[in-house]
Amino acid sequence: MTNAHVLVVGETTTGKSGAMREVIKRREGTVIVVDPHYRPGAWPANVREVVGVSNRYDCVEDLMNWLGDELRRRIERRAANDVEFQPITVAMDEQPDLNKKVAAEALDFWKDVVRQGAKYRLFVILGSQSMLVKEIGLEGESSVLRNFEYTLLLGSFAIEKNRTLDPLGNRAAVVVQSRRTPVPVTIPYYPHEDPRSPQFRPRVDLPPVNAGLYHAAADSFFDRDANNSPIVLPAPGQLIETPSDPTLHGMQTSRGFVSPSEVARILDAKERGLPHYQIEEHTFGDGKKNGAFYYMVEDVLRYFEMNGSTVSTVR
């Protein structure tokens, strides 16, 4: 499953997200995850960016529009006999929610990628709680599902295909490759990677969120900018952009967007002399201490230091 469309189907608590994580780990090239309900540390280390965090469906829409453009670019390149495409995978859990909140045109681009993307090394991993096209958000377009080379079935969906599976085993699954005979497989489970487990331990090196880094992943410029110089992804703490006035417009940091009100809270807490972890809590809420929020605070404070502004002069 390293290079193909994959559909993962399972009811809640059957291990769908865990199965998606295991498939994602084995992906080459750029991996982008769409997850409006993201919890930091929920996805593997090879994920380049998480899009749609905190219900930012405008970012999801932008990603889908970009995917449509990238598919067109690759089609044009293939017509010129340029077929050395770098792989890009977009993983999305629970598409039905997106169908209600993302513009129809952007969703059409997404469906085009499912239909045609595999031959251009644009791959989709889609999680769903149902095999019904209406529930997945593809009512009247069941032909789209035939483009998933692998369907990974969990829970009752797996047992329906293979009655020998343990109905209580959340690691039992069945892979249906195209229209071949179903094959039983075992999904490894790691509690420290499962956000629902009390043993969950989020990584320190978290991916950026809602940062638009996928624009730099276009294959025609893959790892190169317009001057053919290597593209360097933002390191933790490195600013992606520097707005003229973050207190009015917010700012994009190396670990996600910080709103104007959050910028103000960071500056207020810093002026009051609060330690770093309390600045994070003051800004993002109690218990909101992790690598991503740490660097968001760092980036905001560094921006004002770099621009010669003191906290007390910014209002």
Rank of each mutant, 00 (worst) to 15 (best):
M1T: 11
T2Q: 11
A4S: 14
E11Q: 12
E11M: 14
T12C: 08
G15M: 09
M20D: 04
E22Q: 11
V23K: 00
E28Y: 06
E28V: 07
G29L: 00
T30R: 11
T30L: 10
I32M: 01
I32Y: 08
V33R: 04
H37S: 13
R39H: 13
W43N: 00
Y57T: 07
C59T: 06
E61C: 08
E61M: 11
M64L: 15
D69F: 15
R73D: 14
I88R: 03
V90C: 06
A91L: 00
E94M: 04
A103W: 02
F109R: 15
K111A: 13
I125G: 05
S128V: 04
Q129M: 10
M131V: 13
L132I: 15
K134Q: 14
S142L: 07
L168G: 11
N170S: 14
R180M: 15
E193M: 11
D194Q: 06
S197M: 00
R203F: 07
P208W: 03
G212H: 03
Y214C: 02
D219Y: 01
D223R: 09
R224G: 06
D225Y: 04
N228Q: 15
A235E: 14
L239Y: 03
I240K: 02
T247D: 08
S254Q: 08
V258N: 03
D268R: 12
A269M: 06
H276V: 14
Y277K: 13
Y277V: 14
E281Y: 07
G287D: 06
K288C: 10
N290Y: 02
